[in-house]
Structure formats: structure tokens, C-alpha cells
Computed example of a mutant assay.
Amino acid sequence: MPLYEHVFLARQDISPQQVDTLVEQFKGVVEANGGSVAKTELWGMKTLAFRIKKNRKAHFTMFNIEAPHAAVAEMERQMRINEDIIRFMTLKVEEFEEGPSAMMQKRDRDERKDRERGRRRDDEGGEFGAPVTGEEA
């Protein structure tokens, strides 16, 4: 069966419980049409780059779906008529990526601090990216 990654955006003014209800509803549509949802990730509420249907933020959710095209088409049809869904996108993929998606991976704060230290040292005439020792800090 084909594999799909599907992301949808729900309106900012609905509650997280309503988002969970939407997730269960669309999972049910896929499963009723002979498919399965391998993974679900709730990415939370994020700010949009531009307003979509008068919304500045949205609840983001991703599905990894293994289903026939008809199941995905039916899910998309129901999303089009649901007023709580403001956007969605489905991509056909060769295989699912292992582990959490890029949106769920925690960025290493120490890595950012090292970059900031490197910029400070560069501004002071030091070598960019050189480690900062205790005496210099």
C-alpha cells in the first residue's frame, strides 16, 4: 500500500481537546477505508508566516498514513468541508522516517550557546568557533 505524510492545520480558537477529536475523526476515516495511521504527531500551536482565513496561529498535526489513495482522498474531502481545518497537505513518500520528525526534535541549546560564544570571540578578534576557556569567559 502507498505511504503518505499528511499535515493539517486547525484553527487557533479551538481547544486541544477538539484537536484530539479531529485527529480521531480523521484516523477513523482512514481506517474505515482500508488504511492505517502508523504515527500521529501533535506539533502544538505555532505562529503562521502569514494570515490564513483570518488566523495568525494554528494547531499543527502530522499523520504517517499507509492506505489506498481512495482513503486519503476521502479524508481530504472531509477536511475541505470541515470549518475547523484551515489547510492541509498530503505527500506520497517512499518510506517513513525513523524517530520523531524534524518539528519534534529538540534543538540542542548548548549548540546555540557555542555559536553565540564563537560570534563574540570573532567580534573580539579571536578565532571563530574556538573553544572558550574558563579564564577568557
Rank of each mutant, 00 (worst) to 15 (best):
F60W: 07
M75I: 12
S15P: 01
R56A: 07
G134P: 11
L3T: 03
Q78T: 03
F60Q: 02
R117I: 07
K57N: 14
P131I: 05
M104S: 13
A32N: 15
F63Q: 03
D122C: 03
E76R: 13
R87G: 08
R120H: 05
E98F: 02
E74P: 04
W43H: 02
A32G: 14
T133W: 01
S15C: 10
R112K: 13
M1G: 11
E97P: 11
W43Y: 03
V7L: 12
M103F: 07
M104I: 15
G126M: 07
T40Q: 04
V29M: 01
G125R: 08
M62I: 02
I14P: 00
G34V: 14
S36M: 07
A137P: 00
G134C: 01
Q78D: 08
Y4W: 13
R119T: 09
Y4E: 07
N55K: 04
G99W: 04
E136R: 09
V37H: 00
A58S: 11
T90R: 03
M79E: 05
L91W: 08
V93E: 10
D84W: 00
F50Y: 15
E66D: 05
E5G: 08
F96S: 02
M104P: 02
L91Q: 06
R11D: 05
K46I: 08
N82Y: 12
I14F: 10
L91H: 02
P16K: 03
I52F: 13
E41H: 09
E66M: 10
E127I: 11
G44A: 07
T90N: 07
K46R: 14
R11F: 12
R77W: 04
F128D: 06
F96N: 04
A32P: 11
R87K: 12
E136L: 07
V72W: 00
G99T: 09
I65H: 00
A38V: 08
E24R: 08
R107D: 09
E98N: 06
D108Q: 05
H6P: 12
T61P: 00
L48E: 06
M1H: 13
R115Y: 12
M103I: 08
Q25R: 15
Q17K: 08
G35S: 13
W43T: 02
H6V: 05
R77Q: 11
G28I: 01
M45H: 03
T133S: 12
D13N: 15
A49P: 01
D13C: 05
K92V: 09
F96H: 09
A137F: 07
E41A: 05
L22V: 09
M75C: 11
E111F: 06
G118N: 10
F60N: 07
P131H: 12
D123Q: 15
R80F: 12
S36K: 15
H59Y: 09
E97L: 07
E31A: 13
R80V: 14
F8S: 00
A70N: 05
N64K: 04
A137L: 10
H59R: 13
T21A: 12
L22E: 02
H59N: 15
V19T: 01
H59D: 09
E31P: 04
P100E: 11
Q12F: 05
R11V: 13
R119L: 06
R11I: 07
E41R: 04
K54E: 07
L91I: 15
H69W: 04
F50S: 14
T21L: 13
V72L: 14
E98K: 13
Q17F: 05
D13Q: 14
